[in-house]
Simulated scan of single mutants.
Amino acid sequence: MKSCLIVDDSRVIRMVARKIVDELGFEPVEAADGKEALDACQKNMPESILLDWNMPVMSGIEFLREMRKLPGGDKPVVVFCTTENDIEHIQEAIEAGANEYIMKPFDSEIIQAKFAQVGLL
């Protein structure tokens, strides 16, 4: 089963995302900030990552840059899932190695469509 690392400081967002990715056939793994996510990736690199931007300890963009440097860090499909919706943030995310970008709030249909678009489904 493919794994999906859900990185968000909101427990509620993680819970909602967990239910959605589980229904899509992914094994959900959670992290509350970028540092936790980086630790999780060093132990077991996921196939996909749903990533928030604004988090304590380490932001999503900082995590993404560090994760892409790890062995196998080029493999996960990264979908930013954030309230940051201006072109500068989107461009910065893509340049740092994000594959796609979703605006909050999201629902099952949006995640399913983006996962299909990036070849996860």
Rank of each mutant, 00 (worst) to 15 (best):
R18S: 15
V78Q: 07
L121C: 13
E109G: 14
A96I: 02
K35M: 13
I94V: 11
G60Q: 07
E47R: 07
T83K: 10
R65K: 15
E30S: 05
D39K: 03
F106Y: 13
E88K: 12
L5K: 03
I61H: 04
C41E: 02
V21C: 05
D22R: 12
M58L: 10
K19H: 15
E23A: 15
E30W: 01
F106P: 01
Q117L: 10
L5Q: 09
G97Y: 03
S59A: 04
S59T: 11
E30P: 01
E95T: 09
S3K: 11
K114V: 09
V77F: 09
T83S: 15
C4Y: 01
D22A: 14
H89R: 01
A17D: 07
L70D: 05
G60W: 13
L24P: 00
A31H: 07
N99V: 02
L24S: 08
P76H: 04
E88H: 14
F80N: 01
I61G: 03
Q112H: 08
F63S: 00
F115W: 06
R65M: 05
F106E: 07
V57Q: 07
T83I: 12
C81S: 10
E66H: 14
E84Y: 14
E36W: 06
G97F: 00
E30F: 01
E47Y: 06
I6H: 02
E30H: 01
M45H: 08
A31C: 06
T82D: 04
T82W: 09
F106N: 06
I6L: 11
K104F: 00
M58W: 13
D74R: 13
Q42Y: 09
G34Y: 11
A93Q: 06
A113S: 11
E95I: 13
V7T: 06
I6D: 04
K104D: 02
N44S: 14
L51S: 01
L70M: 08
I20C: 04
